[in-house]
């Protein structure tokens, strides 16, 4: 039996300088980790209409002035948020369904050329997205979908990592359930829909979170593909805000802070699944 072990600093009765240094490091790194976000939100919640004050504000004023000016002066901000939501949701739904479906085929079914297909997928996993950036630009340009949300969604559906993840997970599932369902006259798709898919919930949660966060935060491809302000996603929008509202920092701060808020709430709600996803190798950070 494997027990979880508590190490390497056991609870001592006598004074240990090591423990104090350890705690100091933990607290210091926690402050460092959270400070940039804290400062951003503090500034966003403090009424600032021009240059921020020289003595930094460290206690938020809890005023929503900046946010009101943000939505009134920046008529596209809501569009950006909706666009990000549409892209991330569409890509996530695709991956949850089709990666599980093909992951199931690769894990449990036998068919000619299966290994060839799977190796093709595996071999592209290590290739950096910058390598495909230019051809994908040329292809979407050819398809005449550049500068639209489709230009982000369609290439997004091609990510192969999820197929690999789902195949690894489905391989660990017992075969008996599927066979029993077939005996009972379940169709091949029925076996997938009623038996396999429900068993995949933990892996699907990890994959869904990974995909959603990744496409919500994506920047390089969106900044290349989008050019009209109403088509921007949040990342592209806030990156361009700096030039546009150069004199009103309150708007810039609140725009940036508001763009982070959905992911932070999402994380606080589904923390357990996030950290589970990191462990499955799905979520980066």
């Amino acid at each position: 039996m494997i027990k979880t072990i508590a190490l390497p600093l056991p609870l001592p009765r006598k004074f240990r300088p090591g423990r104090i240094v350890g705690w100091a490091l933990l607290i210091f790194t926690t402050v460092i980790a959270l400070f940039p976000m804290y400062w951003l939100f503090t500034n966003a919640l403090t009424p600032i209409t021009s240059t921020p004050p020289l003595t930094p504000v460290l206690i938020p004023a809890f005023s929503l002035d900046n946010f009101t000016r943000l939505v009134t002066n920046n008529k596209y901000y809501i569009n950006w948020m909706i666009n990000s939501l549409v892209v991330a949701t569409a890509v996530t739904v695709w991956h949850v369904f089709f990666d599980t479906l093909s992951g199931y085929a690769f894990a449990k079914r036998n068919f000619p050329l299966k290994n060839v297909f799977f190796w093709m997928i595996l071999s592209t996993l290590m290739i950096p997205p910058q390598v495909t950036l230019i051809p994908v630009y040329l292809i979407t340009r050819q398809l005449d979908i550049l500068d639209s949300l489709l230009a982000l969604i369609m290439p997004g559906t091609a990510a192969a990592f999820g197929i690999f993840l789902m195949r690894q997970f489905i391989q660990t599932l017992p075969r008996e359930l599927e066979e029993a369902a077939r005996m009972d006259g379940c169709s091949e798709f029925g076996v997938f829909w009623r038996i396999v898919l429900p068993l995949c919930k933990p892996a699907i949660a990890a994959l869904a979170i990974f995909t959603f966060v990744r496409y919500w935060n994506d920047f390089l491809w969106p900044v290349v593909a989008l050019s009209k302000p109403q088509n921007y996603t949040l990342t592209v929008g806030i990156a361009n805000m700096q030039g546009e509202f150069m004199t009103d920092w309150g708007i810039i701060f609140s725009g940036a802070a508001l763009s982070a808020l959905p992911m932070i709430i999402f994380f606080l709600l589904f923390q357990r699944y996030f950290l589970e996803g990191v462990r499955m190798g799905a979520v980066k950070g």
Partner: peptide
């Protein structure tokens, strides 16, 4: 606490 900032985009 360590993970919280990591859910934001590298851009932000």
């Amino acid at each position: 606490a360590y993970y919280l900032p990591a859910v934001s985009s590298a851009l932000l």
